[in-house]
Design a protein around this nucleic acid. Structure first.
Lengths: 111, 111
DNA sequence: AATATATTTAAGTCTTTCGTTAAATAATGA
DNA sequence: TCATTATTTAACGAAAGACTTAAATATATT
């Protein structure tokens, strides 16, 4: 929990997760999408991996990274239900979603 | 988005939110639940307030803090829907849309 | 074997964050 | 008014985080 939220506190790391949500990528492909050095990206990937949000597999000389969706979803949904108990805020929550011009959904999402 | 995740990256701040999920509390009541100084807690409350996760109201000499559940839920659910494909089919289904696949843009920052 | 490519580790700097104590602000009550 | 209580602001040092470049490791190529 601590590591997940710390991992998510960085814009670069959230962007990495967004990239990985579309496709598995090598470390180099990820680094190529940022203006920072490869070692810097490598460190960000370590943080994400230690948080359980990504996993890596070495194939040949490349290291492929992929998102671990379940861990991200469980961490965020779990925390949400801890702090925003489902019983109480359903109506207010979906009203808020509509208000923010995001399509309202996921009020009854399974864990 | 940035401020929300930065706010959530601290254990103390997540605990404050947990306390506030059960009841509205004054700054002093919150500070009394931690072993750090009152100014430290006050700063944490500022971070939470700047992130839109809590709001405060001064009544007499006390400042009462309460959780803004909708903002927390929207931030976390919104991010999850961006990054976790599993949440997207549900979203489509409940919205009755026949949207093809993921929208490629909008990776991180909210519109 | 020698070289090139992909990635990580190491070491150092710079900035940010987290805590502290002391002082300021504001409401309460003797 | 003066003192007390509640809270925040200010200033500062210690710890942590995010970069950098240089070096190490591992795989592929010639």
């Amino acid at each position: 929990m601590q590591r997940v939220f710390e991992a998510l506190s960085s814009t670069v790391r959230r962007k990495i997760l967004a990239y990985l949500s579309h496709a598995e990528l090598t470390a180099g492909e990820i680094a190529g999408r940022f203006d920072i050095s490869k070692p810097a990206v490598s460190q960000h990937l370590s943080v994400l991996q230690n948080a359980g949000l990504v996993e890596s597999e070495k194939r040949g000389q490349f290291v492929h990274y992929r998102l671990v969706e379940a861990n991200l979803a469980n961490a965020l949904n779990g925390y949400l239900q801890e702090v925003c108990p489902v019983s109480r805020p359903l109506k207010r929550e979906s009203a808020g979603l509509k208000n923010q011009s995001r399509t309202a959904a996921q009020t009854d999402e399974a864990p």
